[in-house]
């Protein structure tokens, strides 16, 4: 923590605030996210309603907080699936090589060659819409990139002489993978974790915008924007605030990713 760059610290703090806000929003919001109040229909931002109210008179701030909760939860879970499954698979096939490696990499290449949105659409065509289905779909689609990343790292690392000398000393293969190699992938993993998180946020927002992701009554930032699109002029705060929150999340994490990469390069 001590010798961290100032810009990295700022990014980390903002990221922490965002995650915290999302967590809170997942369980508690200042107003109910579903209660409608006709008197507050399209009310502009005020001290009571920081981001104003929507066409049903619901508090936008509460809905944004709650939507953030859903978005961040979906993103964390999908990246988690991709990270764990992808890294373990990638490490194992990278270390042992052989036919399984070739086949798996071929499959990953095919999946990665396709536009993400298209793959998610096909997946949703199979699994149907909803919060959990989008998690499965995105989680599955994130596996290949983590497989590729960890495999590449492990191919590089396993040629290192300290791995050879561990083998010479008689350390077992599984121990070598998990205790000698994976700790050295930390910075590469961290960077792809952050990048993956961003992609997940964007993908979830896009899918929910298209009406194929999170379904009501669950709030989602993407869905809010799609509902708000028609009120752009009557109540500009309605689409603008959820949009800005998405931008802030993505911006923070992409800056964080960049800072982490810089740190990695600086050693």
């Amino acid at each position: 923590m001590k010798n961290m760059k100032k810009s990295l610290k700022i990014c980390l703090i903002i990221a922490a605030i965002l995650i915290l806000a999302a967590l809170i929003g997942h369980f508690w919001t200042p107003y109910s996210t579903t209660d409608m109040d006709v008197s507050l229909k399209n009310a502009p931002p005020s001290w009571q309603h920081l981001m104003g109210c929507d066409n049903f008179g619901r508090d936008i701030f509460s809905r944004v907080l709650n939507g953030m909760g859903t978005t961040v939860l979906v993103a964390l879970l999908t990246v988690g699936i991709g990270l764990i499954v992808g890294t373990v698979l990638g490490s194992l096939v990278g270390y042992y090589g052989g036919i399984v490696d070739t086949v798996l990499m071929r499959i990953c290449d095919v999946i990665l060659a396709f536009p993400t949105v298209l793959m998610v659409l096909v997946f949703i065509a199979i699994t149907g819409t909803g919060k959990y289905n989008i998690i499965y779909a995105l989680g599955f689609l994130f596996i290949p990139s983590f497989v590729r990343m960890s495999r590449g790292e492990i191919l590089k690392l396993k040629e290192m002489e300290y791995i050879k000398s561990a083998k010479v000393m008689g350390v077992s293969n599984i121990k070598i993978i998990f205790f000698h190699i994976i700790p050295n992938m930390r910075s590469a993993l961290l960077t792809s974790l952050v990048v993956g998180f961003n992609n997940a946020v964007l993908a979830e927002a896009s899918m929910s915008y298209l009406g194929l992701g999170v379904q009501p009554p669950d709030a989602s930032l993407g869905r809010m924007i799609s509902e708000a699109q028609n009120y752009l002029f009557r109540a500009p705060w309605y689409p603008i605030f959820p949009g800005i929150v998405i931008i802030i999340i993505i911006l923070t994490f992409s800056m964080l990713g960049e800072e982490l990469r810089d740190m990695e390069n600086a050693g």
Binding site: S206, I246, I250
Partner: peptide, 10 residues
Amino acid sequence: QVIMAIPPFF
């Protein structure tokens, strides 16, 4: 950085 952070639909 800012432009890249804007989702295409927004």
